[in-house]
């Protein structure tokens, strides 16, 4: 195989990985702050894909553009969900939280199956088959746009956590929960915002993915698993880790697809997961537990 093919695959992997990273970032934010693992994460991504698909069908709205309104709507959904359903489980044992969110994921998948059927769906964009050429290297236009949108959302998120008072308060609650109660931070509100932010990430990522791949309701569990792999490789609770983990998995899967076969790509990312768990259990960017 030619060298330019490897460069091409590498670039595609990084671009797709940025979108994966944004999705995983949502999982990481929710876990890092609320300490609840969103086992319905991939299902929310699929829900966002359907939202993007419908918006495309109704208004011919580009899924990459639609990622912004969908992220906003998902923020509201996440906020309400935390306030009503998840908050009472925050102090309960982990297996009960697990049952709650797995239950939610089953409801989402089956509601989608019931409503839209099991057929795979895709959006035909005017630039779906266009690509930029850098010499001999070809890069999909849709992937470039998608990665750019993912970067914009991620940057906005970093700025929110770094520069706003609410962002600092969320970091404070993640840092020291007792301290947060002591100074009178409204922790339940901060949790609701964090869950909202987490779902906004997965909402934007899912919408962008609608421009890149085909989708069926059954995609949910594999996306949840993908988000997990990324977040554990990158380091649970680390924002930079989620993004880097996304790119790493994106590249690893893309390279495995061309070198061996597309069906082997999950094996490569899970091998990476096992390797990281064995050698650096806190993840590449994670802090070791004190």
């Amino acid at each position: 195989m030619s060298f330019s093919l490897y460069v091409e695959v590498l670039i595609q992997g990084v671009l797709t990985g940025l979108v994966y990273g944004l999705m995983a970032l949502g999982l990481s934010v929710i876990f890092g702050v609320v300490r609840v693992v969103n086992f319905a994460h991939g299902e929310f991504a699929v829900l966002a894909m359907y939202a993007a698909f419908i918006l495309f069908g109704l208004f011919h709205l580009d899924p990459i553009v639609a990622s912004l309104p969908i992220a906003a709507a998902f923020f509201v959904v996440g906020y309400m969900l935390q306030r009503t359903v998840v908050q009472p489980f925050v102090t309960r044992p982990q297996h009960e939280q697990f049952i709650l969110l797995v239950g939610l994921s089953i409801v989402i998948v089956n509601a989608l199956l019931l409503t839209f059927g099991p057929e795979s769906k895709h959006t035909d964009l005017s630039y779906s088959f266009d690509s930029y050429s850098l010499g001999a290297v070809l890069v999909d236009k849709a992937r470039v746009y998608g990665a750019a949108a993912a970067l914009v959302v991620t940057t906005a998120l970093f700025a929110f956590f770094r520069y706003t008072l609410t962002g600092a308060a969320i970091r404070a609650a993640a840092d020291n929960l007792t301290g947060a109660a002591v100074v009178g931070l409204d922790v339940k509100r901060l949790y609701a915002i964090s869950f909202g932010v987490g779902l906004a990430c997965v909402g934007a990522a899912g919408s962008i993915m609608m421009a890149l791949t085909d989708m069926t309701p059954m995609l949910g569990p594999s996306l949840t698993l993908l988000a997990f792999t990324i977040v554990i490789v990158g380091g649970l609770g680390s924002m930079a880790g989620a993004l880097f983990g996304g790119m790493l998995i994106g590249v690893a899967e893309a390279l495995a697809s061309v070198i061996a076969s597309p069906s082997i790509k999950s094996m490569v990312s899970f091998s990476l997961l096992v390797l990281v768990l064995a050698l650096r259990p806190q993840g590449l960017f994670g802090k070791a537990e004190a």
């Binding site: 600092a168 404070a172 840092d175 301290g179 947060a180 002591v182 009178g184 922790v187």
Partner: peptide
């Protein structure tokens, strides 16, 4: 607790309970 704080009851807790990864400035703002 946030309502109690807002009534004017402050607390300097055992073990200080600062936010270790936040800056001194951010800690004060909190």
């Amino acid at each position: 607790s946030h309502r109690v704080c807002n009534l004017g009851i402050g607390q300097v807790a055992e073990g200080r309970q600062v936010f270790p990864t936040l800056t001194v400035h951010e800690n004060l703002l909190m």
